[in-house]
Design a protein around this nucleic acid. Sequence first.
DNA 1: GTATCATTGATAACGGTTCTCATTACTGTT
DNA 2: AACAGTAATGAGAACCGTTATCAATGATAC
Lengths: 134, 134
Amino acid sequence: MTPPVRKRNTWQREAVRAALAGGDGFVSAQRLHATLRDSGSPIGLATVYRALADLTGEGEADSLQSPDGENLYRACTPGQHHHHLICRNCGLTVEIEADAVERWAQSVAAEHGFSQPNHVVDVFGLCANCSPPR
Amino acid sequence: MTPPVRKRNTWQREAVRAALAGGDGFVSAQRLHATLRDSGSPIGLATVYRALADLTGEGEADSLQSPDGENLYRACTPGQHHHHLICRNCGLTVEIEADAVERWAQSVAAEHGFSQPNHVVDVFGLCANCSPPR
DNA sequence: GTATCATTGATAACGGTTCTCATTACTGTT
DNA sequence: AACAGTAATGAGAACCGTTATCAATGATAC
């Protein structure tokens, strides 16, 4: 029914996907753009934003808000839902299991008559390396 | 040692505190400013931001980021740590106990060598009134 | 090859927040 | 009560991340 042409394959989109997959922790769109530019890609900033939004929508990337209002992105196994432990100094990210929290969010929401719970559960801290010596 | 003059009492600061205490759910700084202005206060926007930042720092207000990047504020009993269940349609807010989550965040952080966990745990959803009929 | 139309990218616009700096006014002292 | 010192204020500019605009480009179907 729907014509086969929905999304076109462009090297730009692929470059963003690759750059995201290559990175370790969460990256901001701007940082990703800078990285790509430094690697020689003449990709535009707007395109990076668009690609990231698409990837997030398709479940190929995970996004979250840093405490200072930036949107951060990270490659992510599709469809899988999990949370993160992020070092607020170096950006190191650990994916964490949160089944318990998952259930808790659901039940707490239901308990108060809320539907479609969209929880935000992320822990920012200092990783072992970045923790103060004492 | 430190001179007794640290913070001055101004009607502006008090007005912000009062407006915050009067409100029900979370409010954005801009909305709070508009409300104050509508009530006749000639208070400036920058001052509202400063007052909110101060109140948050002193633990008299709670702040969180809405999913679209705004900072929201709410009066809060000092020193008490809790989380929120927020209706993403009407803004209704319910304070929720999260002892379990609290402990979970601590242990998960410690488990991975992280210190000073600063967790973000908030649940956005649709309250009973705003939920779709079916 | 050609036509179509999603995608791109430079730049402008936008919205929230912070900064600047001259002015105001709270505070402790005289 | 008047004063001096100095936080605090406020209008507007500056900032920063993000989104919209729109002409040019190029991937895809035929």
